[in-house]
Design a protein around this nucleic acid. Structure first.
Lengths: 227, 227
DNA sequence: AAATGTGAAGAGGTTCACAGCG
DNA sequence: CGCTGTGAACCTCTTCACATTT
């Protein structure tokens, strides 16, 4: 059995594994700092970073998050941006490229592929699957849309790490099983179903209807606020 | 100043306002129970509901959630489904229809509109905006895509409650301001920016890159698991 | 007996306050 | 002095254990 890393570490030691809620914050830091570095900045304080992020995250929170990454700050001075960006990339797993397989190339799959291509250079769209003859054979930025029936053989070829489920709800479980069976280690699921997996697969669900219900609930009963 | 509802209520009183994390769960209950009711079931236990949900939520959690909605259960017996569905709809704000304005009718806006139309009958697509001449004037399920320049005047007409931001990142803040200024009370934001609002508007952000980073982090450093 | 309803305990994350260091 | 780093307090949500009711 694998012992949890945190239990082994001495106080002050570097923890590569972070809590799940922290990761999107670290990602936001990474992006903002990479931009700042590109603009020629070398050093930043936790307050300066909070400014860059529009004060959506407090400077205290930022310091807590960054201190978990190692001794990257200088007291009275701030953080050197370059090593910080590197360490964030390492912790986020962004020091390497990832191969994405998109299942379902309707509007949603198309939107997601476009988004990745436009903004996230570490995420390569490695394969696209659909079951519609009208879509199969289309080419998208050099990737040919393949018949979902050939999913297994195609995945042997492209060796994708992450699968994106953008198929209708009825098909989602079956596609998820097949992706996992073919060696994909993580799934981003847009279908409104709770997937039951046999193998250990990392899953994140995008629950659009659930998000809408938060809005309607708060419009009905809670006070509006800004973030 | 508004006192928080919970502080005013006596123990056992009904709370219509719920914590934000609970809402997607309540929404899932609502959907599963409405299906069960349609299939002819009249009564269900917390364990039975957990079964319907594929054990993604524990029966204890379900009982805690439902007990906050009022005295809906009978000990030793279970919950009558119909009043439960009604109360859930009330708490979720789903006893009425909502008018949605979609800004940006690229692949993402199109995908979202299709999703709503197919699955959520309480959410009506009331207006669609885009800035591309190729898209403006198109008709989608009886809704005509309008020029985003006419957003304000169109919103006076359709009186939308909720705005969906499916435009590129650069345009998101401006569109958000204009939607809020036109009386839209809540926004679902797909653009990878943190919106800064002057007016009190309810905002939910869908952070796709952040979700991807959770997957890459966990693929790199954490153990895989199933939900 | 069966299942709800709930106080208490537990777990996890954020904020506070300030010690520590450059 | 300025800013990081961090234990403690705080807060929120989940799980446990069991009293309660039908």
């Amino acid at each position: 059995m694998i012992e949890r890393a945190a239990a082994v570490l001495k106080p002050g030691a570097i923890r590569l594994a972070q809590s799940e809620v922290a990761i999107p914050r670290l990602f936001a830091y990474h992006r903002a700092l990479a931009q700042a570095a590109a603009a020629g900045k070398n050093v930043i304080t936790s307050i300066g970073l909070a400014d860059l992020l529009g004060h959506t995250i407090s400077s205290t929170q930022i310091r807590k998050d960054l201190s978990a990454l190692g001794p990257l700050g200088r007291r009275g001075h701030g953080y050197a941006i370059k090593p910080l960006v590197d360490q964030l990339a390492l912790v986020l797993g962004l020091e390497r490229d990832w191969r994405i397989a998109i299942a379902g190339f309707g509007f949603l799959g198309h939107a997601f592929a476009t988004f990745l291509a436009a903004r996230e250079e570490r995420f390569k769209v490695a394969a696209i699957f659909d079951n519609s003859p009208a879509v199969i054979g289309q080419e998208w930025q050099g990737v040919c849309v393949e018949d979902v029936a050939a999913l297994e053989s195609a995945l042997v070829r492209v060796n994708a790490n992450i699968g994106v489920i953008a198929v209708p709800a009825e098909a989602a479980q079956s596609i998820a099983d097949r992706l996992a069976e073919s060696g994909v280690g993580a799934l981003l699921n847009f279908a409104p179903v709770s997937l039951r997996m046999r193998r250990p697969v990392i899953i994140r669900n995008i629950d659009l209807a659930g998000e809408m219900s938060i809005l309607t609930h708060r419009l009905s009963f809670a006070e509006g606020y800004t973030s």
